[in-house]
């Protein structure tokens, strides 16, 4: 997954929590940065920024726990879209 994607995700999370800096592997829910309500913000962000609707089978908190996990979700969905059109 590209560094750009990770940077975009990191920027969003840090924009929503201006006082916090996180690494790409930090579990944002476990370290107390985010609450479960923030998960919905993440879903809206991912869908609008990367242009796909999170499918039901990917609708798991684990996919939103860290920059890395979200980037992996984006990569999987991009591959699906690319596969679908190609």
């Amino acid at each position: 997954m590209s560094d750009d994607t990770r940077a975009t995700i990191r920027q969003f999370i840090c924009g929503r929590f201006p006082s916090v800096s996180i690494s790409d592997t930090d579990d944002i829910f476990a370290i107390g940065v985010a609450t479960s309500l923030f998960a919905m913000e993440l879903v809206i962000f991912v869908e609008n920024t990367f242009g796909f609707q999170v499918p039901n089978e990917e609708l798991e908190m684990a996919n939103f726990r860290s920059v890395e996990a979200i980037a992996a979700l984006v990569a999987r969905q991009s591959a699906t879209v690319a596969g679908g059109t190609g």
């Binding site: 929503r16 929590f17 201006p18 006082s19 916090v20 800096s21 996180i22 690494s23 930090d26 370290i31 107390g32 940065v33």
Partner: peptide
């Protein structure tokens, strides 16, 4: 959210 969470290690 504007200040660090009490238990936020990051």
């Amino acid at each position: 959210r504007r200040v660090p969470a009490a238990n936020a290690s990051g």
